[in-house]
Computed example of a mutant assay.
Amino acid sequence: MIRLLHLSDVHFGAVDDRLLPPLLALARDLRPDVTVISGDLTQRARPGQFVEARAFIDRLPGPVLVVPGNHDMPLGNLALRLLAPFARYRRTIGPQLEPTLTLPGAVIQGVNTANPLVWKSGRLTRHSADRLTRTFAAAPKEAMRIAILHHAPIPAADGTPADMANPAGVLGTLAQAGCDIVLSGHTHMPHAGFAETAAGVLFLQVGTAISTRLKTDTNDFALIEIAPGNVTRHAWLARQGHGFAPEPVTRFLKVASGWQTVAAP
């Protein structure tokens, strides 16, 4: 079984500092095999914000796999945004925008959905789609195939349409590549969902782990336990800046027709 800690939208530059110590302590106590951050490490892609994000990453249990989000590109510096949108990210966080990690029983592929040509919505480029397809094709048959995206091609928890170009096409690409699980953020709302056109893909979103930019009444993150054919999701919520507390567990089972939610033991 793989234990994966899923964080997103930490937004250094707009952080509730009261949540940092309990989150880091709990992350160490949970002892995940891998920690994933699905984008928006910073609020405005400023150098100091990336330095804070890097220091945070260095304190997380590793290995840590990170992808950028739309907030990780400069907003006000148009020349930098168009010519080198991820220069600050690469310099401080790391050179890889689409990292790959192989674990016993799983392969994880990061996908950069941030689009420098627009402010908020995402995209899946042909280059990224090809990389994802190659990675999953090379993985052992029994391996769980997990993609990390900032933007998801399905509606948010409140029904808001997917904030991504050609979501139907993205769903098709994920399904054809053999993707089992997509972990994402962006909406600042935790959500678990399926798509009729990609029934074999389980979509798990978390909100914001430590940012003040809330769209619900709480910060959150998740610990995801992955075993052959089933996934267990442990959600952790914090309200009013206090430490995180566990929520009821959600379990998903993969059957011939796709994923289904089942009662947790």
Rank of each mutant, 00 (worst) to 15 (best):
G105M: 07
T261D: 02
G241L: 01
A177I: 03
R54I: 04
V36F: 10
S121G: 04
A162M: 10
G159K: 15
V34K: 08
V15W: 03
R59E: 15
P246L: 09
R239A: 08
L174C: 07
D33W: 01
A263T: 11
F203C: 06
A238R: 07
R213G: 13
L41F: 11
T187W: 11
L80A: 09
E225A: 04
L174D: 04
P248G: 02
S128E: 06
G159Q: 14
T125N: 01
H234S: 01
K141D: 08
H127G: 00
T173P: 02
V206W: 04
R233S: 06
V111G: 02
P74A: 15
F50T: 13
K215R: 04
H6V: 08
P32M: 06
L60P: 06
L103S: 00
N77K: 08
Y89V: 03
T113F: 01
A195W: 05
L7E: 12
H71R: 14
V67Y: 00
V118R: 09
N77Q: 12
A162P: 11
A138H: 15
A238Q: 11
L41D: 09
K215W: 05
V249Y: 08
D163L: 07
H71D: 13
N166K: 15
P140Q: 12
D163G: 14
T218M: 07
F203P: 03
L101K: 13
G185D: 09
N112H: 00
D72F: 01
P22Q: 05
R88W: 11
A192V: 13
R233D: 05
D33G: 14
N219Y: 03
G172T: 02
L19C: 11
V111T: 14
R134Q: 14
R59Y: 04
R126S: 05
E52N: 08
H151L: 14
P155H: 13
P85S: 00
R213Y: 10
R145L: 14
A45G: 00
R145Y: 06
N166F: 12
T250P: 01
L117C: 01
A53Q: 03
R123G: 02
G94E: 11
N77E: 09
A209H: 08
A199P: 13
T187Y: 12
I2C: 13
N166C: 14
I146H: 10
L26A: 05
T160K: 15
V34T: 12
G69C: 06
F194W: 05
Y89D: 06
E142R: 15
D72Q: 00
A256P: 03
M73S: 09
D29K: 15
H6I: 13
F252S: 02
R44E: 07
V249Q: 14
I181S: 13
T160E: 09
V255G: 04
A162K: 14
L7D: 09
R90F: 11
E52D: 15
R81F: 09
R91V: 10
R46Y: 01
K120D: 14
T261P: 05
D16F: 04
R46V: 00
R213M: 05
L26C: 04
F136G: 08
H11P: 04
L202D: 06
A157T: 12
V51K: 13
L214R: 13
F221D: 05
Q176K: 06
P190I: 15
T100D: 04
R123D: 12
A162L: 14
D217E: 01
L132E: 06
D16G: 10
P153K: 05
K120G: 05
V66F: 00
V51C: 10
A147L: 09
V107M: 08
Q205P: 05
F221G: 13
A139E: 07
P85F: 00
R233K: 08
